[in-house]
Design a protein around this nucleic acid. Structure first.
Lengths: 243, 243
DNA sequence: CGATACCTTGATCGATCTCAATGTCGGTGG
DNA sequence: CCACCGACATTGAGATCGATCAAGGTATCG
């Protein structure tokens, strides 16, 4: 086991940054890329499972996730972070950990705020990221509220596949996915055993498989069906319920 | 039954707006309040349960909520909106409905973007709102993932009480709360019957009661206990699960 | 080879859903 | 004024999904 994570180090200059097209600073014109460096406070490498203490950072390589624990000690994973994502350690007691070995650019919150205060485009880029986060959380909330275990798992896998694809980290039928079953369980409000069974169902039905860090989508239509993956608008039931 | 909602109409001028101190435009200095009017596209009154079609608006009076339905027709409430909140009808098939009779200022998305593009402070105010939305969704996700029915109900009631209090709409021991049990159920991933039973438990244990549109908090320490209402940071279990 | 981390499976238990009534209360038409 | 109606709230009994508990199984790494 190497002492340091086995990741290519970050480029010294932001102008060569491979993830900038997907990141907060994508809106900064080439001419002002130099200014970004003043917001950067450190470049770091962390090992899988290490807790990250920096308040704001842009993930460069590897995965991370945000989580809390309830008072009785159970973990809830709030979101997964992919390369290019801007991640904030929030005030409210949530933590951020590396899911894999990872590297990132820590930012100074003060200098970032200052920069955004001068550059509305950057502020809007920041807002755009928040808006995406919110959309993801809403989807996940819908999963936990109204989908069964198989549906939740299928939905999360489709979500991650889509996000990876947008960054070129996936092909149409699969992608590398470093999640353990415990991560799935803690993100979806399931026990590990049940997450395992849901995954087994998907595999048995030849819908999808997640093994050895790789997702394979075998039957996308069926998977979307199970996940309730419709971005379709809805008629308006006035006062509904029925779990 | 009146044909029009029984709400005081909005003031003609934004400078007299009662909710502006809590709203997106709180950061606009008095001298430029006139510019806000150009972003406003309409003032509307809607009845309880009416679907709202405007894309972006500031709620002025009354409550609203955002929701989706799953493919099998069950409803998930994504968030509740209170006076002063900026509400967006999102791209993704989520709808917004009035929970009570309500009035609001519809905004032009284009002109709002333009304004924010000129005024970084406004863009950051917008981001701040998104950030709060996200924090609320994370809390709710934790509820659905890791808390039982009574905990979920208690937590949501505390959240709403806190939000109302910040706006002066609640005293320490209670507040008017127009939610039906079906709203609670659909927000928390429960059946109406079970939401009812959870509420009954809280009442029986003399922790809190929600009746006739009013919340009473009878035993706040106990309620916080049940809700897991700790904003306490947590130790880091490395790979947990166990629902 | 043994340890460790992770995955899998089975049996049982329990929280929550479903289905089916019944109760309450404010409003409305007669 | 009263009987009825519709919207909500409540209660009970039985069915289910997913949690727990308890073993194994497998693969990787030192």
């Amino acid at each position: 086991m190497s002492v340091k994570p086995n990741l290519t180090p970050l480029p010294g200059s932001c102008s060569a940054c491979a993830v900038r097209p997907f990141a907060l600073f994508r809106v900064v014109p080439q001419a002002q890329v130099g200014e970004i460096a003043r917001v950067r406070s450190a470049v770091r490498l962390v090992r899988a499972n290490e807790v990250i203490r920096d308040g704001v950072f842009t993930l460069y390589a590897g995965w991370a996730f945000s989580w809390t624990t309830t008072t009785d000690g159970r973990r809830q994973i709030l979101d997964f972070h992919l390369p290019g994502d801007l991640v904030e350690r929030s005030e409210d007691g949530a933590e951020v950990s590396a899911l894999t070995d990872a590297s990132f650019c820590a930012l100074s919150r003060d200098r970032l705020c200052e920069f955004m205060g001068r550059d509305p485009g950057l502020a809007l880029s920041y807002a755009d990221g928040l808006s995406r986060d919110r959309a993801r959380l809403r989807e996940r909330l819908t999963s936990l509220g109204r989908r069964d275990a198989v549906g939740r798992v299928a939905h999360l896998l489709l979500e991650l596949h889509t996000r990876l694809q947008r960054r070129g980290g996936a092909d149409r039928t699969g992608a590398p996915l470093p999640l353990k079953q415990a991560h799935l369980a803690d993100a979806l409000g399931l026990s590990v055993e049940h997450a395992n069974r849901a995954l087994a169902t998907l595999r048995r039905e030849e819908v999808a498989s997640l093994q050895k860090g790789r997702l394979e989508i075998l039957d996308r239509p069926e998977m979307e069906e199970l996940a309730g993956w419709s971005i379709a608008p809805a008629e308006a039931p006035v006062i509904t319920a029925k779990a």
